[in-house]
């Protein structure tokens, strides 16, 4: 039997609906429409012409940038998950409550400063005459080229996503039923094996969602590939700026943006499906 919509429920759900319509659905619809518009003499004109889709999808550089961006975001997600897990595990299981609260606070602090400023500050560390190379030089090593490399881009991605990944993993780990871990230990399951057989499967949803957020953030990031990676290799976000810089080709940029949105939706759908796979059957333990 359908429950009637109450005024109480409507009051609380309406702002979310309005928000979604204003800041997601309407811009998305406009973006779709824009991708069919045309540009003549630097002026964008309303149209219904698939030429932008045909042009962009026919360019090898687009697919090259797509592959690069996807690969970098996937690598960042794996790296962030692997680096974050020992940290979030230690915070969840080894620290006292007060120390845990302090650790969470420390994870939140990076969000108080601008990401752009944090990325620029990495240049001081990673340049040839930067802090890292000076320290290496003191022990007779280097200098090693670090800035304007894929490695530096990855450092930027970690700056962006790692604190969030740790927090999301942490929230998942702290809610694991401790009796499961005790039971594993009682059954002579070693510590490492307990992590892989009990902790990770129990926190799977949170771990996958954390990795997914990392993918979403890094897939669309423009700052790190440009200011730490030196714009080389070209990512989709860089390709968007290149496309708009010459000839006011905003409709073609819209094609790239929509492809990115579609990719993220597919990745998010598959990730969530994977995260919850088997849970209905009670296979969580």
């Amino acid at each position: 039997m359908r429950r009637p919509i109450s005024l109480y429920g409507l009051t609380f759900s309406l702002p979310l609906l309005v928000w979604q319509l204003l800041f997601f659905v309407f811009p998305l619809v406009f973006l779709v429409a824009l991708s069919f518009w045309t540009v003549k003499n630097f002026t964008i004109r309303p149209d219904f012409n698939p030429v932008n889709w045909v042009t962009m999808f026919g360019k090898p550089v687009f697919w090259q940038a797509y592959g690069t961006t996807f690969g970098l975001a996937a690598a960042a997600s794996v790296l962030a998950s692997v680096v974050a897990f020992p940290c979030s595990y230690a915070i969840a299981f080894k620290l006292s409550d007060s120390a845990r609260r302090m650790a969470v606070f420390l994870m939140v602090i990076p969000f108080f400063t601008s990401y752009l400023v944090r990325v620029y500050s990495w240049q001081i560390f990673l340049s040839d005459a930067g802090i890292v190379n000076v320290m290496l030089g003191a022990v007779g090593l280097g200098p090693y080229p670090m800035l304007n490399t894929v490695g530096a881009t990855m450092v930027g991605y970690m700056t962006l996503a790692l604190p969030l990944v740790i927090l999301l993993q942490l929230f998942s780990l702290v809610f694991i039923d401790r009796t499961l871990i005790e039971a594993a230990h009682n059954m002579r399951c070693g510590r490492i094996r307990t992590v892989f057989e009990v902790v990770i499967p129990s926190a799977r949803v949170g771990l996958v969602i954390a990795a997914l957020f990392c993918f979403i953030l890094t897939f669309g990031d423009f700052v790190s590939p440009v200011y730490l990676g030196g714009g080389d290799p070209t990512t989709l976000s860089i390709l968007i700026t290149d496309t708009t810089k010459s000839g006011q080709q905003w409709p073609r940029a819209a094609v790239i943006a929509l492809t990115m949105i579609a990719t993220l939706l597919v990745v998010a759908f598959l990730s969530v499906r994977f995260a919850y796979a088997g849970q209905a059957k009670g296979s969580r333990t």
Partner: peptide, 19 residues
């Protein structure tokens, strides 16, 4: 040979710090 493609700010900083 290319170390990067830079915008206005990036050009300044990469030349300034000898990168």
């Amino acid at each position: 040979q290319i170390g990067g493609f830079f915008d206005y700010g990036g050009t300044f900083s990469s030349l300034n710090d000898g990168q």
